[in-house]
Write a protein that binds this DNA or RNA. Structure first.
Lengths: 127, 127
DNA sequence: CTAAAACCTGACGTGCACGTGAGAGACAAG
DNA sequence: CTTGTCTCTCACGTGCACGTCAGGTTTTAG
């Protein structure tokens, strides 16, 4: 698979894929002409990388973590790192839940004090 | 209250507080000499701003949202915006839960295959 | 009154995850 | 063999939430 195909399959830009390789997160074989050739498994690998990015991890942290996920490294230190990042994500979830609850409270207030209380956005068009 | 005191009370840097004002998120009176004077309520306001930043909102979005939270603006558009951001946070929570579960799976695997399975980080020191 | 501490306004620097050309080479189709 | 599309490697640009230094002013403690 070439880089463009991997990009469309994963929804990640070509530039991002090259960046992942630059950061050591994604490896690729090369054709005789120097073009990147990816295995099918690269699709899942990109999804995993994106998931960890979305969880707020830096590329450096992901780089440290990936060997553990691949089960190639399993030391007390690596397990501690995994737990640490897991706890970080846990805290982030807690923060997000608080923010969501806060917004929910605001929404409930605004909708209860809205005239009629059962009006929708479209109702206003006929009022 | 002056800016340094607000900074220590909230745990946010002085530079960040000035940045919040620059973005229109936080207002302050001025002394005759031009120094910022904050109300006690600014502490909660800063906490709220930090919460929304932590939820991944941009300062522009926060700027749009704050009047709704202050209940000064309550239009169908503002309510739609609130719900949109709430849903965004919801999706982010879902993604984080997936990432956490993925890490949990890795942790369970690594700890079950660890020699002894009940060893702690310190055990390795005496092995 | 004086010295230290806190504060002020620019304004450039930073880290990160890419975006965006520039110029040149690789590759499949006709 | 040629044309069009894809790909390559630099390398500078970007957006955001600040960090940091400079040079000067304000406030407070003694």
């Amino acid at each position: 698979m070439r880089i463009g195909e991997l990009a469309t399959k994963t929804g990640v830009s070509v530039r991002a894929l090259r960046y992942y390789e630059e950061q050591g997160l994604l490896t690729a074989a090369r054709s005789s002409g120097g073009q990147r050739r990816y295995l099918d498994s690269a699709v899942d690998r990109v999804y995993l990388i994106q998931m960890l990015y979305a969880a707020g991890l830096s590329s450096r942290t992901i780089l440290d973590l990936l060997p553990c996920v691949d089960a190639k490294v399993n030391t007390p230190q690596s397990r501690a790192m995994l737990r640490a990042e897991r706890d970080r994500i846990d805290q982030q979830i807690t923060q997000l839940l608080r923010a969501r609850d806060r917004l929910d409270a605001v929404i409930v207030l605004s909708e209860s004090s809205a005239s009629g209380c059962t009006r929708t956005d479209t109702d206003v068009l006929v009022s």
